[in-house]
Structure formats: C-alpha cells, structure tokens
Simulated scan of single mutants.
Amino acid sequence: MKVRDFMITNVFTVTPLTTVRDLLSVLNSNRIGGVPVVDEKGNLAGMVSDGDVLRYLAPKLMGVAGLVYMIDDGEIEDVIKEKLNTPVKEIMTKRNLLFVSPNEDFETVLRLLSQHRLKKLPVLNRAGRVIGVISRGDIIDNISKKIIPS
C-alpha cells in the first residue's frame, strides 16, 4: 500500500498569520488535533497542534523553585484572551519537519509516526505543496478495513 491509498485529501490548513483564536476555531469545528501551516502558494511552512496551543496558553511557573504562578486567580482569562491574538507562526513547529510523498510505502509512515511519536504527517507533492495528511487514526482505520479480515 502507498500513502496515496489512505491519505486524507480534504486538508484543513492555516497560514503563519492565522491567529491562535482562528486556529482553535478550525481545530474545534473540524474535530482535529493539528494542521499544516502553509504559505501563500500552499507550500509547507510548519505544523501546529492542539498541544502547541496548550503549551503556549499554559501559565508559566515563576519564583522560588517554580512554585508561584505569575498570574493571580481571575486574571488568567485576560491573559489567554490576549494570547489568542498571537499569529500561529509564533507557536508552530517550523524546523525538522517530517513529511511524506503520496508514493511512499505504508511501512515508511508507520515507522515515522511511531519513531517520532507524531500524530500526523503532511503529504507533499513534488512541488512541496500540501496535498494531504496522514494520521495515526487513518493508519488504524486502514489496518482495520484492509488488513484485518472481516
């Protein structure tokens, strides 16, 4: 099997200038955990996930032994509201991006997802444009449908 046989082609993406607020809307309304970040030509610029958002929004520990929060109760909502206007380029993964081509073997995707503990990989065409994604769920679904006899 090749990646093209089980990749998702209806890809949700954001741009580096998309705000965290708009990113959360895309993730929530489509019930997904991450998306490729693309430039104006559709080329891969990065990846951003719900985990990136949580790490960015979480209060930072400060003080002696890191036991005192910088934010008092009641103020966290204000801080989060302000952080929601941050562009995705500030929190996305942009270095050492892994991706696959539609012609890669199923085994390659299994290895990359498991070795690097990734949840999804973008699928790029020869021009470097995002044409699909493949996730752990897609792998499990395809194993269930195509490999496990019914």
Rank of each mutant, 00 (worst) to 15 (best):
R126I: 09
K89A: 02
V88Q: 01
M7P: 06
V123P: 07
V123G: 01
D22T: 02
H116E: 12
V38R: 12
G63Q: 05
R129W: 01
T93E: 01
L118C: 11
L98I: 10
E107M: 13
L54A: 14
L112P: 01
V20E: 01
A127M: 09
E82M: 06
T108M: 10
I140C: 01
S25G: 13
E82R: 11
R111K: 13
S101A: 10
N28R: 14
N30P: 03
T19Q: 09
H116F: 15
I80M: 03
D73P: 08
D39S: 05
G42Q: 11
G63W: 02
F12G: 00
R4T: 06
F106W: 09
R126C: 04
E77K: 15
D141E: 14
A45R: 13
L61A: 14
F99P: 00
K119G: 15
P87T: 02
T13D: 05
A65V: 10
V130K: 04
L27K: 08
G42K: 03
V38H: 05
I131P: 07
R21L: 14
G42E: 06
T15C: 04
V20F: 05
L98H: 15
S135A: 08
L67N: 12
K94C: 04
A127R: 15
V53P: 03
N10R: 14
N43E: 14
L54D: 08
I91A: 10
I139Q: 00
L84A: 12
F12T: 08
D78R: 11
G46W: 00
D73A: 09
E40H: 10
M62S: 12
V123L: 11
I71C: 01
P59L: 10
K89G: 00
L110Y: 10
V37H: 04
V100E: 12
V64N: 13
I80F: 03
N96G: 07
N85Q: 09
L61E: 14
M92H: 14
N28S: 15
L113Q: 01
Y69G: 08
L24E: 09
Y69T: 14
V48D: 02
G63S: 07
T9D: 15
I76D: 06
M7S: 03
V11S: 13
L124Y: 05
T13Q: 05
G137Q: 03
E75A: 10
V11A: 08
N96Y: 09
D52I: 05
V100Y: 06
E107D: 12
L124Q: 01
E90Q: 09
I76K: 11
V64L: 15
E107A: 08
E40M: 10
E75T: 09
K89H: 09
S25C: 11
L121M: 06
A127W: 08
G74P: 11
K119T: 08
D78V: 12
K89Y: 15
K41A: 10
D52Q: 02
I134P: 03
L124K: 06
I71P: 03
G42A: 08
E104A: 13
V48T: 00
V64I: 15
I76G: 05
G46S: 02
K94Y: 07
E82V: 04
P102Q: 14
S144V: 06
N142T: 14
L23G: 07
G63C: 01
K41S: 13
S144D: 13
M70V: 06
G33I: 05
T19D: 08
R136W: 07
I32T: 00
V48P: 04
G63H: 14
K83F: 01
R129M: 09
N96L: 11
R95M: 02
